[in-house]
């Protein structure tokens, strides 16, 4: 960076103190203590008799990967529910972003953007509760269902695996498709317009420009969206916690990893909660490294391009 440096270094240190002091006390120390807890046996029996803390090495981890713990199942649930929401989210966000940025279509986009983003600012727990009541036995969706199918019995959405998972995914979709649309719009707007002009002169149709110009050029942002959404999906908690009442409903088929973590935190099983947190940390760190790797690769490509043009 070209900038005049001012030698007031002391003030730089003073101004970053609050941030880092708080970070060390409320994030770093808890993180270290979480790692430490994962190697100890420490839980309550029947809610009052304390066992531990006793050093047990990797036993908590071994316990988590035993088949009767079902952790793999909970990872699977999380992944399935995430995919169920993310696939339509990416599809429609791409479609809408390409429409919104299409100068030939000249769409009035303001109101749509505002409405599409609205669910994102709403409390996820309240969204979960709202959908739970709307889809409940006496809810309006069941009134609609009964009048369409002529059935006198309500459909029990929260007693079936796929309707319950589908509702959680639907909420995730509604909450995030507006956000992704706006992100992708920003990416498409960053593309050099002369590329589209020359494509048009060459007689390319809209689907050709979309697949041959837009998609390849926004690929880095698409990857970024994919991985940040995956990290977000991994942390999925509020909606499944509320909709499936702590993950227990329908034989724990909507229990996500963090809902499961919350169970151990709530019952004060610190050893298991610690080991599970460490596993989550490792997965999130690997995904973040992937982003870092992919975005730096993008930068070197850019540099090459610039060099080539000059």
């Amino acid at each position: 960076m070209r900038r005049k440096s001012i030698s007031y270094a002391k003030w730089g240190y003073i101004f970053v103190i609050p941030f880092f002091a708080v970070f060390i006390v409320f994030s770093l120390i808890p993180l270290v203590s979480t790692f430490k807890n994962s190697f100890y046996e420490n839980y309550l029996v029947n809610g009052y008799r304390q066992v531990g803390p006793n050093w047990v090495g990797f036993e908590n981890y071994a316990e988590l990967f035993k088949s009767e713990t079902n952790l793999i199942k909970y990872f699977g649930n999380t992944l399935v529910i995430w995919l169920l929401g993310f696939i339509p989210q990416l599809f429609f966000s791409l479609l809408f972003a390409s429409w919104f940025t299409d100068l030939r279509l000249k769409l009035k986009t303001g109101a749509y953007k505002i409405i599409f983003y609205l669910p994102n600012v709403i409390m996820a727990a309240a969204m979960g509760m709202l959908f739970f009541t709307l889809f409940s036995q006496s809810g309006p969706i069941n009134s609609l269902y009964k009048s369409i199918t002529g059935s006198t019995e309500p459909f029990m959405f929260f007693d079936h695996i796929w309707s319950q998972r589908g509702i959680i995914a639907l909420i995730n979709f509604l909450m995030w498709f507006g956000n992704t649309t706006i992100m992708l719009m920003a990416a498409i707007n960053g593309i050099d317009p002369s590329l589209y002009e020359s494509a048009q002169i060459d007689g390319a149709n809209p689907s050709q420009t979309f697949w041959k110009i837009t998609i390849p050029l926004i690929r880095p942002i698409l990857l970024y969206v994919l991985i940040t959404s995956l990290i977000g999906g991994l942390q999925m908690y509020d909606v499944p916690q509320i909709v499936s009442n702590g993950g227990e409903a329908v034989n724990r088929t909507s229990m996500t990893v963090v809902v499961y973590l919350n169970k151990h935190l709530y019952s004060k099983n610190y050893g298991m909660a610690g080991a599970l947190s460490v596993i989550l940390f490792v997965v999130a760190a690997l995904l973040s490294l992937l982003i870092f790797y992919l975005t730096t690769e993008k930068d070197t490509k850019k540099k090459k391009k610039k060099g080539g043009r000059k």
Binding site: S27, S33, Q235, A284
Partner: peptide
């Protein structure tokens, strides 16, 4: 300000941006 740790601190903050809050929740609650 131009101080020694500036670059390091900046990179450090970018790195911690991706750590999910739930990961340290156990230590935090304790």
């Amino acid at each position: 300000y131009d101080f020694k740790l500036r670059k390091f601190l900046f990179t450090f903050i970018l790195m911690i941006m991706m750590v999910p809050a739930q990961v340290s929740a156990l230590g935090f609650v304790r």
